[in-house]
Amino acid sequence: MAFDLADRGIYGFSTTENLRFADVDANGHINNGAFLELLENVRVSYLRQIVRTGLPRFRMVVGRIEADFKRQMFYPGTAVACCRLIEAHDRKCVVGQGLFDGEGNCTAVQKVIMVSLNEETHRATPFDPAVRAMLDRLVASKGGIDP
């Protein structure tokens, strides 16, 4: 299934983030690093509140981040950061994310590969079958939230 990460309608999970003066760079707009922090906030919240709920303990780490910056944002203001699972595999899953300004314009999209990690060996390991089943359901669900 292909997802247009710039389409606000594909996301069922989001957070509203305040843009800070400290996030402004020398060009007078919100720094790209702040975009990544805003997207990290929603990703961590999504993983804790939606993905991990009711499952056996498992650990994931970021294996890759691919971000596309689409337009500027300015202080003061707010942004809506969105998140959903877009792929599930044996040892990894892909989180799709979008960042939207206060007017609803897409300002950035991001794909994050999360790798299943064995806590003892610190090496990639297959997901527990219950976890994998939940990941598959989230990918297939409307908005990335289990129905």
Results as ranks from 00 to 15, higher is better:
residue 40 E to C: 10
residue 20 R to K: 10
residue 116 S to Q: 02
residue 25 D to P: 05
residue 90 D to Q: 05
residue 29 H to G: 13
residue 69 F to C: 09
residue 90 D to Y: 08
residue 82 C to L: 08
residue 61 V to N: 05
residue 80 V to M: 08
residue 108 A to I: 04
residue 72 Q to D: 11
residue 144 G to M: 05
residue 128 D to N: 08
residue 3 F to D: 14
residue 132 R to A: 07
residue 56 P to E: 05
residue 109 V to H: 15
residue 30 I to T: 05
residue 128 D to W: 00
residue 19 L to C: 02
residue 30 I to E: 09
residue 62 V to N: 07
residue 39 L to Y: 06
residue 40 E to M: 06
residue 49 Q to F: 10
residue 125 T to G: 03
residue 1 M to W: 00
residue 130 A to S: 14
residue 5 L to W: 02
residue 85 L to P: 08
residue 112 V to L: 08
residue 89 H to M: 06
residue 95 V to T: 00
residue 136 D to G: 03
residue 9 G to E: 13
residue 73 M to V: 08
residue 38 L to T: 11
residue 72 Q to F: 10
residue 24 V to D: 05
residue 76 P to N: 15
residue 107 T to G: 07
residue 85 L to I: 06
residue 21 F to M: 13
residue 35 F to A: 06
residue 81 A to G: 00
residue 66 E to K: 07
residue 16 T to N: 14
residue 84 R to M: 08
residue 9 G to L: 11
residue 103 E to Y: 14
residue 99 L to T: 08
residue 67 A to T: 11
residue 94 V to G: 00
residue 120 E to C: 09
residue 68 D to I: 15
residue 114 M to D: 01
residue 125 T to V: 14
residue 34 A to N: 10
residue 70 K to Y: 12
residue 39 L to R: 07
residue 106 C to Y: 06
residue 76 P to M: 14
residue 24 V to N: 12
residue 64 R to K: 14
residue 92 K to Y: 04
residue 75 Y to L: 11
residue 142 K to N: 14
residue 112 V to F: 04
residue 124 A to T: 01
residue 131 V to T: 02
residue 47 L to S: 05
residue 106 C to H: 05
residue 103 E to H: 09
residue 56 P to L: 00
